[in-house]
Simulated assay, not measured.
Amino acid sequence: MRTIEELVSGAPVFSKLTPAQRKQLLELTVERNYRKGEIIILQGTVWPYAMLVIRGLIRANKESPEGRCLSLRSFVIGSVFWGHGLFGEYCTPATLVAYKPTTILRWAAKDLLSIITENNEALWDLCLQLSQRMMEASQTITDIAFSPVASRLARLLVDQFEAERQTHIERKMTLEEMATTIGSTREVVCRLLYRFSDKNMIQVDRSRFILVDREELNKLAEGEIVLTKE
């Protein structure tokens, strides 16, 4: 298990700081703990901080006025979230929720930026991180606008199989969580999973998914094939 010092030293931007600057950063750290399901940042609020996840899992969920929810991104151990309020009176565009018991390290804008702006490499890395976040947001919009739900679900499964490096994976996400991740509904996800099973791409049981035809699942994820209506 990595120490707090190791997590900070290995995190984007912070890794570019000098040892003395990281020591100063650690002295300004505020640690916060959250229960599973607890809201960390509410959509629409100004949050002038950055945080590093040192335990648990956080998801950024975008909520519509009608109550629909889309999971934009996950923050795992070692991930850094740069609050929009760090850079002005900008509202957070999503709600960040702890999906497991979670611990974060938090830094206020005035403390953090005074250190980063003294280090050109760290400042440049921050620019790269924010640019990457914009590109990821653009890709999410593209996927939602132009990719069929079946392709988005197939991509989610492919990513999970690749992450585990196995042909079977535990069902760690509920149907509701899967639906939130791909911008759909629980009912549609359930129906599509069994369509994938009928097409012999995967097998589905109560506790896991089993990969049967990686090539066909990849083709569906990449939009090279589509599921025909039956």
Rank of each mutant, 00 (worst) to 15 (best):
G56M: 09
S147I: 01
I144M: 14
W124F: 07
S131W: 09
L96W: 05
T95M: 03
I39T: 12
W47C: 01
I141G: 07
S79C: 13
L128S: 05
K100Q: 05
L72D: 06
T45M: 15
M135R: 15
G88D: 07
S138A: 09
C91K: 15
G44W: 11
A94R: 00
I40C: 04
G83V: 03
V76T: 08
A94E: 08
I115L: 07
R68E: 05
I54T: 09
I41T: 10
T92C: 07
P65D: 10
R106M: 01
T117Q: 11
K62I: 04
K36S: 13
K36Q: 11
E89T: 08
F87I: 08
I58Q: 07
M135A: 06
L112T: 14
P101A: 12
I39G: 14
G56A: 08
L96N: 05
I40E: 01
P101V: 11
R106F: 00
T95V: 02
A145R: 06
S64R: 06
T95F: 02
A98Y: 02
F87P: 02
E38I: 12
I39Q: 15
R106K: 05
E66P: 05
G85L: 00
T103L: 01
T92S: 15
A60I: 01
I41F: 13
A94W: 00
V97T: 14
A108N: 11
L126I: 06
D143G: 12
L105E: 03
V76S: 02
I54K: 02
L42E: 05
E136T: 13
L96H: 12
A94V: 06
Y99H: 11
G88V: 07
P48I: 01
E118V: 00
G44N: 13
L86A: 03
C91P: 06
W124E: 12
T95G: 00
I54Q: 00
A109K: 05
T140V: 15
I144R: 07
L126F: 04
G88C: 15
E63K: 06
R55Q: 10
L72A: 15
Q132A: 08
R68M: 13
E136P: 09
L128W: 02
L72I: 04
I41E: 12
A108P: 04
A145P: 06
M134Y: 14
W124L: 07
G85H: 03
W124A: 03
A108T: 01
F87T: 10
W82V: 02
L86R: 00
T142S: 11
S114N: 09
C91N: 08
I40N: 10
V97F: 13
Q132C: 08
L86S: 07
D125C: 06
M135V: 04
Q139I: 02
R68Q: 11
I39A: 14
I58L: 09
T92Q: 14
S74Q: 12
I116Y: 03
